[in-house]
Simulated scan of single mutants.
Amino acid sequence: MQAIKQVEPLVESETISAWVRRWAPLIPGGEVLDLACGNGRHARHLVSLGHPVIALDHDPEMLEQAAGTGIVTSLVDLEAPGAVWPFAAGRFAGIVVTNYLHRPLIESLVASLAPDGLLVYETFSEGNEQFGKPSNPKFLLKEGEMLTWAAQQGLRVVAYEEGRVEQPKAALVQRICAVRPDFPRLAALLPPF
Rank of each mutant, 00 (worst) to 15 (best):
A3M: 10
L10Y: 01
S13R: 13
I16D: 00
I16N: 01
S17Q: 06
V20Y: 06
R21E: 15
R21T: 11
R22M: 04
W23Q: 05
P25F: 04
L26S: 02
I27G: 02
I27N: 02
P28C: 13
G29P: 10
G30A: 10
D34E: 06
A36M: 11
A36K: 03
C37T: 15
C37K: 04
C37W: 08
G40C: 11
R41F: 11
H42G: 02
H42C: 08
H45G: 02
L46P: 01
V47Q: 05
A55Y: 09
D57Y: 02
H58P: 00
P60H: 06
P60W: 03
E64F: 08
Q65L: 15
A67C: 05
G70H: 03
I71P: 01
I71R: 01
V72T: 15
S74Q: 12
L75M: 08
D77K: 06
E79Q: 14
E79D: 04
A80P: 01
P81K: 10
V84Q: 12
W85H: 01
P86F: 08
P86D: 12
A88Q: 12
R91S: 04
R91H: 13
G94T: 06
T98F: 06
Y100P: 01
H102W: 15
R103Y: 02
P104I: 12
I106S: 00
V110W: 00
G117Q: 10
G117Y: 05
L118A: 05
L118G: 05
E122A: 14
T123M: 06
F124Y: 15
G127D: 09
G127H: 05
F131Q: 01
F131S: 02
G132Y: 13
P134D: 14
N136P: 00
P137D: 12
P137H: 10
P137C: 12
K142L: 13
